[in-house]
């Protein structure tokens, strides 16, 4: 069922997060592979997502980092896309996707010219792991296997020691997000964004492997 979240899935996740507050582990690893709300129990699913959002923030406020790992075939969409971005950091593979509305939903409501959900290359240029990593929405780009995710998660747990949001940290992020929507207003393809970021051959980005993409990002930030 596409990792969809209904009443029971939500309750289990909330229970685990609350347990983390009692047991105080070094970090919580949140493995997300989900299309969002389970539509068959739409209302209960929406409320469950909202409860997960509150619970993630409660764990983080308790000084325990929550890392989102996104590497499954469903990605993290809908409410679970919001949940992923409430975590301390998102680790994603190139195959992973992170967004709000699925391309199929946008196509159904807004038309195929707005978003052709069958155009897989386009879907990945808009929602895929590489794009999210290059834009800074995901902290780490990880090879698409369990060992790499484990290694990256361990490194991240070691690096993130204090992650409680403050007025100052949210003000800083507010500033970054405002600048970004101004700079990229009206863009609708990853290719245009990457070109604007100074990447000389944006059309080559989808072909780069993980190592080359990480190196490219390093050069962009240098």
């Amino acid at each position: 069922m596409g990792g969809a979240v209904g009443e029971i899935h939500g309750a289990k996740i909330v229970g685990l997060l609350r347990r983390a507050l009692l047991e105080e582990p070094r970090a919580v690893l949140f493995l997300i592979d989900s299309g969002g709300v389970r539509l068959h129990e739409a209302n209960a699913g929406l409320i469950a997502i909202s409860e997960i959002m509150r619970a993630v923030l409660e764990v983080r406020a308790g000084g325990i980092p929550v890392l989102a790992l996104v590497g499954g075939s469903c990605g993290a969409f809908g409410g679970m896309g919001i949940v992923a971005k409430l975590c301390s950091a998102v680790l994603i593979s190139e195959e992973g996707r992170l967004a709000l509305s699925g391309p199929e939903v946008i196509e159904t409501v807004a038309g195929v010219e707005e978003f052709d959900s069958k155009d897989r290359a386009l879907v990945w240029r808009v929602t895929g792991g590489k794009h999210r990593y290059l834009m800074g929405d995901c902290a780490e780009l990880v090879e698409d296997d369990v060992a790499s995710f484990r290694e990256a998660a361990v490194a991240c747990v070691t690096a993130v020691t204090h992650d409680v949001s403050t007025l100052e940290s949210l003000q800083a992020r507010q500033h970054r997000l405002e600048q970004r929507i101004e700079r990229f207003a009206g863009f609708n393809d990853g290719l245009d964004v990457w070109r604007s970021l100074g990447i000389e051959q944006p059309e080559s980005v989808p072909m780069l492997d993980r190592g080359a993409t990480v190196a490219l990002k390093g050069r962009m930030e240098a």
Partner: peptide
């Protein structure tokens, strides 16, 4: 908003930011 350009800039991220501000 159901739009490709909104998704391109990680709309779930901006909605999460708003939710986190309410929580703060």
């Amino acid at each position: 908003a159901l739009s490709r350009s909104e998704e391109l800039l990680c709309l779930n991220g901006s909605l999460a930011h708003l939710a986190e501000c309410v929580d703060l």
